[in-house]
Design a protein around this nucleic acid. Structure first.
Length: 345
DNA sequence: GCGACAG
DNA sequence: ATCTTGTCGC
């Protein structure tokens, strides 16, 4: 009766050991100093930094294994987007603290590979990663992992602190607020062992919550900090922020999978009866995912979810269109008619 | 032993 | 990561 059942999802302790070994091996290739051909200052001779990439993954709220991976590239000078690509995937592994890379790196590397293979002129010279670099229990976080495997200079950006070497949120906050640091916008993260793991940075003037910068691969902390400062319009550097925004937007559109039928062109009586509905529709129609003759897909704001009971039984007029609203459990008393999943772009 | 733990 | 409500301020 010692049957070993397969573990399609989840991570066994054997996985843990394998992961640790893999991280140890990859870490031998890690380069922790500036190692690139470009320069920051355009006055100098030669290649200058022009294309900065950012990667992020957003998740489905319905099914946490469904995710949208996003790669963006921004012009370093203007911070304008010059490239974006998405990959909607089902992740096979769970998130385990300290092993984020095994969940997220493969699909992100795939996006980079695809871009490189097609000889895209905007292929990034530097990549910012939503997650830590060497600020990690074994000094090899997601940003290092991607950097080594893609052989790209990478910077890790954490929005929360991963507790390493005695570092924790409150201690860092005290350090940032300390008298001698009150004028600085960043401080080094020095652990109990005196090692410097990265930097905590107030990226926006007066912002309380810092971001946590650590080197990924082929870059020094000093250079990484400079580049992060330059690319911060808001708290999170723009390449990461754009990847995050666009990733979330992409997946949000795919989540609109419940439908309800209403009139395509609301009659006067209909509008009078449900004035609020008209407001919603006219406001949301601009943000519609796609519009065909028969269907309009929109997302209704949460606060408009107390749908009129009337929607339960849409009239069968030929003008009827289908509105797609989020599949949520708390639509008061309205028994929505759920249609088939519609594939849309 | 227990809690803490990037996304 | 994701959920959610209002609230404050430019």
């Amino acid at each position: 009766m010692e049957e070993t059942l397969p573990e399609p999802q989840g991570a066994s302790s054997q996985d843990h050991q394998n992961w640790i070994t893999a991280q140890d091996i990859l870490r031998e290739k890690l380069i922790t100093e500036d190692s690139f051909t470009w320069k920051l200052a355009s006055q100098e001779e030669g290649e200058t930094l022009r294309y900065v990439g950012g990667v992020d993954i957003s998740f489905s709220k319905d099914d946490p294994s469904k995710a949208c991976a996003t790669l963006v590239v921004l012009d370093f000078l203007t911070l304008q987007l010059v490239f974006q690509d998405f990959s909607f995937v089902t992740l096979q592994l769970p998130y385990v603290p300290g092993f984020l890379a095994f969940r997220e790196a493969p699909v992100l590397l795939q996006l980079l590979e695809k871009m490189k293979r097609s000889n895209n002129p905007f292929y990034p010279q530097l990549l910012m990663v939503d997650g830590n670099g060497i600020l990690h229990p074994r000094g090899f976080g997601l940003a290092c992992h991607i950097g080594v495997e893609a052989n790209l200079p990478t910077i890790g950006i954490g929005k929360n602190l991963h507790h390493v070497d005695g570092l924790n949120q409150s201690r860092v906050r005290k350090l940032l607020e300390a008298e001698e640091n009150s004028s600085k916008n960043f401080i080094n993260l020095v652990g109990c062992s005196r090692q410097i793991w990265g930097a905590a940075m107030r990226s926006t003037q007066g912002s309380i919550k810092p971001i946590f910068i650590s080197i990924g691969h082929r870059i020094s902390l000093e250079t990484a900090i400079i580049i992060v400062q330059i690319t911060c319009k808001y708290r999170v550097p723009e390449p990461i922020r754009q990847a995050d925004i666009r990733s979330r937007d992409y997946i949000r559109k795919l989540e609109m999978n419940a439908k309800v039928k209403i009139d395509s062109q609301p009659k006067a009586s209909y509008s009078q009866q449900y004035p609020k509905l008209d407001q919603i529709v006219s406001r949301m129609i601009l943000g519609a995912l796609s519009v065909t003759r028969q269907r309009i897909m929109i997302k209704l704001p949460e606060k408009e979810m107390n749908l009129p009971r009337h929607w339960e039984s849409p009239d069968s007029s030929p003008n009827a269109v289908e509105f797609f609203v989020p599949l949520l459990p708390f639509i008061n008393g309205v028994n929505l008619h759920f249609g088939p999943q519609i594939g849309y772009v």
